[in-house]
Write a protein that binds this DNA or RNA. Structure first.
Lengths: 336, 336
DNA sequence: TAAATTTACGAAAACGTTTTCGCAAATAAA
DNA sequence: TTTATTTGCGAAAACGTTTTCGTAAATTTA
């Protein structure tokens, strides 16, 4: 069988308590004994059973990351940042994908109250318009940090980007490049970040005395084909826009695809700007003007904040709202 | 405190064994009792402690995915497939990123022998040229399935693509489009899939009576800037190629970047084909000809194979080598 | 030198399950 | 009716740690 603490104890003629303490460098154990124990542990390749330890200590050294999807450069980068911190802290990272489905999100939230994780990092799904499952998580005192798509109804830390400013700048950028009718393409009416971006969009229109046309504020789904059809309808309609501000990358890509199909010239007939973490925006035809979020840093900061909760108990009610800056990079899709 | 099996037992005047059995639908418990127990469990929102259960049963309901990186469309899609299966099986997915670093890979392999996971899915790092850590994992009887980048020195299941054929077809495609001097860009001399692709490359050259120029078989690192400099040197040298076959997406992108900088026209002066899972290959300038792997399916099949190990003990020595087909999609970067 | 303290360790309980063993009561077979 | 079997449940051990409590021996203090 596998070598456990009892095996070490027998081999060294010590009690299991001494072994345990020696391995954890307890002050109660003499240096000589510690050395003996550690040498034997190394020799027998002793691997402590994490579940026995977790059971006893009520600590799992594991965090969960609950996100809508992973095939998305933003979230992939964020996970990268999270995993980076987790490795440093010697923590383990569980991944759960909701696919924008609130039922899955509820399922994860409810199943992860059982001690499997010490804390959770979350970006809520586009469908989520009720927060009972998150409130319940909080009640169970599961440390929770939101990133990017936060839940404002819950008292907790969050890491976001300056979505309002990003939305404002994006829209103003289009206006400055001559756009008069700017469409805002969005995933969901419920998302915190989307709404802030829309507020920025509206503010920019107001500032420049452009009237707000509700028909140009469009919501899309998770279904790519359906989205493209919807875009086809706008772009071939009478009231077609001359500028598009996509709240998320995939809607910009859908627009590119439609323009290719409909032979609409970007940027001559239509200018496009998008929130995006596509590393090859500059290689697109035409290159895509983006507002880029510091995705890796967002993941990293989110994880660091979670560990602040985990490392100090009295931090549980000290919430931080960190807002990182996005960067607008003008490229071909908004050229004059 | 949190409600446990003992609480239920007290509330129902039953023993904890009965509660445990009732919850697990044991035949030893009457239907009436089961109902009573389950109702009470629901009422008190009982959540079984996973670590107590894991400790007792030596099962963690958790698998690990060890991959080089996550900011890579192939691996993101593969994880998507893995997570899909895991959700169905009610398993948990731990993510570990090696960043192509063999030391990290060794660290993960050695730390995950302690029972934390029931099995592992792995795509080995580009640096990995010694397999002792994997052999040790196998010795500890940790079920292990390789995908994409496999370890041929280890007896185990693997899910790959038809890399030889993909490499052959890619190269022949370039030849048919008129290329005479085709460079093969690769990450590492150690990777199983890269080597198969290279074998395909060589076979195609041989078939078409093109001599093999070792200088055109190039290895790159994880460092993007360094890679681009290396590409600059080839593309501005005297013996510059007229075709590039990139074994991985990021090298194709690096080549695109360099061509942009050096003002090299794709496809006129240089044709490019690449293994890639970029969903927007068609939107690049020019659109990129790709050999695309069924990444989601690879992840899914890898997970399914792992669960075959987990569900039947006697399967542990029945290894499967599943090879899925890749698809060559001709686009602008190899147009005549 | 006696008393107090510190050092270094062991015994045993505890964490929350699952499972083995045992055993009455109920039912079926003889 | 007697015996054999099944049904339904409880007591207790077990999983592998950590931690509380206790205590001799060594050391320090008075």
């Amino acid at each position: 069988m596998s070598v456990d603490i009892k095996t070490l104890a027998k081999n060294l003629n010590l009690s299991i308590s001494t072994i345990s303490r020696a391995l954890r460098d307890s002050y109660e154990i003499s240096d000589k004994t510690k050395l003996r124990v550690k040498e034997m542990a190394a020799k027998l390749n002793y691997q402590p059973n994490p579940y026995a330890s977790s059971l006893r200590k009520h600590k799992s050294k594991t965090i969960a990351v609950v996100i809508p999807e992973i095939t998305n450069n933003f979230f992939a980068l964020a996970i990268n940042g999270i995993e980076y911190v987790a490795q440093e802290k010697e923590y383990h990272v569980l991944i759960y994908l909701t696919h924008e489905n609130i039922k899955k999100e509820i399922g994860f939230a409810s199943h992860l109250q059982n001690g499997r994780i010490d804390g959770m990092l979350m970006s809520i799904s586009a469908e989520t318009n009720n927060y009972d499952h998150l409130i319940e998580l909080k009640k169970k005192e599961v440390p929770l940090v939101f990133f990017d798509r936060i839940c404002e109804a819950i008292e907790s830390s969050s890491i976001t980007t300056d979505d309002f400013e990003g939305g404002f700048n994006a829209t103003e950028h289009l206006i400055q490049r001559g756009c008069k009718k700017i469409a805002y393409l969005d995933l969901s009416r419920y998302l915190s970040n989307s709404n802030k971006r829309m507020q920025g969009y509206i503010a920019a229109l107001v500032k420049h005395n452009i009237s707000i046309d509700e028909r140009l504020i469009m919501r899309f789904t998770n279904n790519i084909a359906a989205n493209e059809e919807q875009i086809v309808r706008v772009l071939s309609g009478a009231e077609k826009p001359d500028g598009v501000f996509a709240s998320v990358e995939k809607l910009a890509i859908a627009t590119y695809n439609v323009c290719q199909r409909l032979n609409i010239n970007i940027p001559k007939q239509l200018k496009i700007i998008s929130f995006s973490n596509l590393e090859i925006s500059s290689l697109l035809n035409p290159s895509l003007t983006t507002i880029t979020q510091p995705a890796f840093e967002i993941g990293k900061q989110a994880a660091l904040q979670l560990f602040r909760y985990l490392e100090k108990k009295n931090m549980m009610n000290v919430h931080e709202k960190i807002i990182l800056k996005s960067t607008l990079i003008p490229r071909g899709s908004t050229a004059i």
